[in-house]
Amino acid sequence: QVATSTVRILGMTCQSCVKSIEDRISNLKGIISMKVSLEQGSATVKYVPSVVCLQQVCHQIGDMGFEASIAE
């Protein structure tokens, strides 16, 4: 089973930030795809909930120095 959710990301300033986040999160087990939008300050994450949760994704992004939260 696959889920798609949006994560809000604060602190991104350039495409390099976007690429860094996409590269790191895409390597997590259970992540199918991730598309980060600098303009919208968010990311669309396609993932397998039984393998990885959005809290883990937000935590990983937080470790990179950005502020991440699950969009309502």
Rank of each mutant, 00 (worst) to 15 (best):
Q1Y: 11
Q1I: 09
Q1L: 07
Q1E: 15
Q1M: 06
Q1V: 11
V2M: 09
V2Y: 14
V2K: 04
A3G: 04
A3F: 14
A3M: 13
A3R: 13
A3N: 09
A3I: 12
A3H: 12
T4P: 02
T4M: 10
T4F: 09
T4C: 15
T4R: 07
T4D: 04
S5K: 08
S5I: 08
S5M: 10
S5F: 06
S5E: 09
S5P: 04
T6R: 14
T6Y: 15
T6D: 06
T6K: 11
V7M: 12
V7K: 00
V7T: 00
V7Y: 03
V7F: 10
R8V: 10
R8Q: 10
R8S: 08
R8F: 13
R8T: 10
I9L: 04
I9Y: 02
I9H: 01
I9C: 05
I9T: 00
L10S: 09
L10M: 09
L10T: 14
G11K: 05
G11C: 05
G11P: 01
G11Q: 04
G11E: 02
G11V: 05
M12I: 05
M12S: 00
M12Y: 03
T13M: 11
T13H: 14
T13I: 11
T13P: 00
T13E: 08
T13W: 15
C14I: 05
C14E: 02
C14Y: 02
Q15R: 08
Q15I: 09
Q15L: 12
Q15M: 13
S16D: 14
S16A: 13
S16L: 10
S16P: 04
S16V: 13
C17A: 05
C17R: 02
C17P: 03
V18T: 06
V18M: 05
V18H: 01
V18N: 02
V18E: 06
K19A: 08
K19T: 12
S20W: 06
S20M: 15
S20Q: 15
S20H: 07
S20F: 06
I21Y: 03
I21K: 02
I21Q: 01
I21D: 02
I21F: 03
E22D: 01
E22Y: 08
E22F: 08
E22R: 04
E22W: 07
E22M: 08
D23T: 11
D23N: 13
D23K: 10
D23F: 09
D23A: 13
R24E: 11
R24P: 01
R24T: 09
R24I: 06
R24M: 07
R24A: 11
R24C: 06
I25N: 01
I25F: 10
I25Y: 03
I25V: 07
I25W: 02
I25H: 02
I25R: 02
S26P: 01
S26K: 11
S26N: 12
S26Y: 07
S26R: 10
N27V: 12
N27H: 11
L28P: 01
L28S: 02
L28G: 01
L28K: 02
K29W: 12
K29N: 14
K29G: 08
K29R: 13
K29A: 12
G30M: 06
G30Q: 02
G30H: 03
G30K: 03
G30T: 05
G30Y: 05
I31G: 00
I31C: 04
I31V: 14
I31S: 01
I32S: 00
I32Y: 05
I32T: 02
I32H: 04
I32Q: 03
I32L: 11
S33Q: 10
S33A: 07
S33G: 06
S33V: 04
S33M: 08
S33N: 07
S33K: 09
M34F: 15
M34Y: 04
M34W: 05
K35R: 11
K35F: 08
K35I: 09
K35G: 03
K35C: 07
K35V: 12
K35P: 00
V36L: 04
V36S: 00
V36A: 05
V36F: 05
V36R: 00
V36I: 11
V36H: 00
S37W: 08
S37N: 12
S37G: 03
S37C: 09
L38R: 05
L38I: 06
L38A: 01
L38F: 12
L38K: 01
L38Y: 09
E39Y: 08
E39C: 07
E39F: 12
Q40V: 06
Q40G: 10
Q40I: 08
Q40P: 04
Q40C: 09
Q40Y: 13
Q40W: 12
G41Y: 07
G41F: 07
G41V: 04
S42W: 08
S42C: 11
S42N: 12
S42P: 04
S42R: 11
S42A: 10
A43I: 06
A43M: 07
A43F: 05
A43C: 04
A43K: 01
A43T: 01
T44Y: 13
T44I: 15
T44S: 08
T44V: 13
V45M: 06
V45G: 02
V45T: 00
K46Q: 13
K46Y: 08
K46N: 08
K46E: 11
K46H: 09
K46G: 04
K46P: 04
K46I: 15
Y47R: 00
Y47I: 02
Y47L: 03
Y47W: 08
Y47Q: 01
Y47E: 01
V48L: 13
V48W: 12
V48G: 02
V48E: 10
V48Y: 15
V48T: 07
P49D: 04
P49T: 08
P49F: 07
P49R: 09
S50F: 08
S50Q: 07
S50L: 08
S50C: 05
S50W: 08
V51A: 07
V51N: 02
V51E: 12
V51R: 06
V52S: 01
V52A: 04
V52H: 02
V52R: 00
V52D: 01
C53Q: 10
C53W: 08
C53H: 10
C53A: 10
C53L: 10
L54C: 04
L54E: 01
Q55N: 09
Q55T: 09
Q55C: 13
Q55V: 12
Q55E: 12
Q55P: 06
Q56V: 10
Q56Y: 15
Q56W: 15
V57C: 03
V57R: 03
V57W: 04
V57L: 06
C58V: 15
C58S: 09
C58P: 05
C58K: 12
C58R: 10
C58D: 04
C58H: 07
H59K: 15
H59Q: 15
H59F: 14
Q60E: 15
Q60A: 15
I61D: 03
I61C: 02
I61A: 02
I61F: 04
I61T: 03
I61H: 04
G62D: 14
G62P: 02
G62R: 15
G62S: 15
D63T: 14
D63L: 15
D63K: 13
D63Y: 10
D63M: 15
D63S: 14
M64R: 01
M64K: 03
G65P: 01
G65C: 04
G65R: 02
G65E: 03
F66I: 02
F66G: 01
F66W: 05
E67N: 11
E67F: 14
E67Q: 12
E67C: 06
A68H: 03
A68L: 05
A68D: 03
A68F: 06
S69I: 11
S69H: 10
S69P: 02
S69Y: 13
I70E: 06
I70T: 07
I70R: 04
I70V: 12
I70M: 09
I70F: 08
I70C: 14
I70H: 06
I70D: 05
A71R: 07
A71D: 13
A71F: 11
A71S: 11
E72M: 09
E72L: 09
